[in-house]
Design a protein around this nucleic acid. Sequence first.
DNA 1: CAAGTGCCTTTATC
DNA 2: AGATAAAGGCACT
Length: 297
Amino acid sequence: MEKIVLTPNQPFDLDLTLSCGQAFRWEKIGEWWYGIVADNPFKMRQNGNTLEFENVSPDFVEKYFGLTDDLPSILKQIAKDKHIAEAIKAVRGLRILRQDPWECLISYICATYKNIPAIKQMLFKLSKKFGEKTVFDNRVFYTFPTPQKLAKASLTGLVGCGLGYRAKYVAETAKRFASGEFNFEGLKASPFEKAREALLALPGVGLKVADCVLLFSLERFEAFPVDVWVRRIIIKYYANHFEDKFMEKVSSKKSLTKAEYERLSLFGRSYFGRYAGYAQEYLFHFERTMDEKHSLN
DNA sequence: CAAGTGCCTTTATC
DNA sequence: AGATAAAGGCACT
């Protein structure tokens, strides 16, 4: 067992960070969170300002959980109004993970037009079927399938994991990685727009998926993914930043056009600044948990 | 409990 | 450019 004592004034909330829906393969059993990153399964728990973990190095924990981000400074930068202030108050300590880009990419291709419980199930099945089995702490884990493995997978095999029409996107994207036609190395040094454009060329990757991958795995914190929740949040709290006509249009439609998405996302980036992605996650999780509390009443 | 609605959207087509 | 439809199937009401 190893531990990290959090730096004073650097809030971190493990539960919020792992349950907010940015990563899908973590499970809480008792007070321990169990997960696997790359080929390394580990467990972790939080007790006040102490993090305890097994089978992983402190350096990795620091990096993966974004503990090196200066959260107070970030929150200060995004705290532009009373709505975001309320979200910050409610979910302070939520941090953006540094996910493995490959797993993140496939996860969000699968996540389109699905709800979070269903996404978790799909990714579990996919890992069980195409990943490598490992055992840690008397529990079974599966590595996330490699591009090579998914490139070789049959469509029916993928559909069997519940991917539905997403199966062909996953297979095709996997082939581009397996062949070496595409990799993340080039993206890391690219400017935001360039990296985004490159991702958009992949099958099954639209603006929303690209923004999620940039934010959750490529350390592009200016990315501002606009899903149905964020769209509702903008309509509810930030309508005054747009023309009435545009808000009406955006409110009435089931799905956004590319241009509409861009307008909403660009608002997020310019309004909240270089850590817009943090603002997005705070608003997203706050609004979702508020909604849950509502439905309990 | 059945049936309807919605889901951290993308793509194809007009 | 912009609107519209289709696309698994699960989860929730």
